[in-house]
Amino acid sequence: MKILIAFKYSVLRTLKIWKAVLLIWFSSLLTAGMIGIPLKRALKAGFSNSTITERLAHGIRPEVFSDLGPVLKSMMSYISGGLLFAILVWFLLNVVFTGGLFHSLSKTENKFMIRNFLGDSAKKFWSFLVINIIMSLITAVVVFIIIVLPVNIITSSGTPDEGVLIKTVRILVLVFLVILPLLLLAADYARAWQAAHSKNECFRAIGFGFGNTFRTLFISWTAMVAILIVQVLFGWLVLSILPAYIPEKGGGVFLLFLLSQFLFFVKIMLKVWRYGSVTSLMEQKKAKAG
């Protein structure tokens, strides 16, 4: 019941702060566009006035790109550098936005205003930055310990049995998938707690995040698994639609752009829904304790 209340509450709050979602969507478009638009110009210059692009009518053909020669080499170095830059920029933007989102999703915030959203983000930027960095590092370390290290040990033993290796990897991934909701819960509870408190106390927030996760383990974990299942199903839908849709006319490309951006907008809504659900679970527990 608590989970359903949290989900319902979160849906309503998410819809209420649609302007914030719009802002996040637009920022991500700008960030990705910083890399994508110069890439388009490079492709245009590389293919020049050739009819070779007809060979790309039905999808990506690496051999067509390889004939770009030195242009391709500079494009690849630009893309790899650009990706790192985009990821760094987005990491920082995400810190800003999550600060505002968790605050806007709390019960204390009645009317959503972009000014307050950005103001709250700015006030708690450093605390949210530390929480994001620490939780990202913890996730990376968990991936390393649970998956990378054991696989490395097995493969470096010299005679890995193929069947054993595949089964081991499957089990390790499964273990990680069981642990992943706990890490996300800890990160979300930490940020929800920080949003509800005026002082910047990132380490206390992380402590609360882990503590609350384990105190409400069954409900929290079940809720997070349900949310992740919805997100995975949505991801599967996106992966089934976008790569397979290969428009051949300008109008179709515009439709692709609209469709992909709409799907991404929904993806952000789903993430905000997750934040809102965790915030609601925390508030329900607080109300009960009070």
């Binding site: 994508g36 388009k40 009518a57 985009a86 996106v238 428009p247 991404f264």
Partner: peptide, 23 residues
Amino acid sequence: KPDRVPERRMTDKFISFLQFFMN
């Protein structure tokens, strides 16, 4: 009359996948 549709399509897809990846 160069056909720019494939370039636009690939760039659009690149941008949207980058958005999903960052998210």
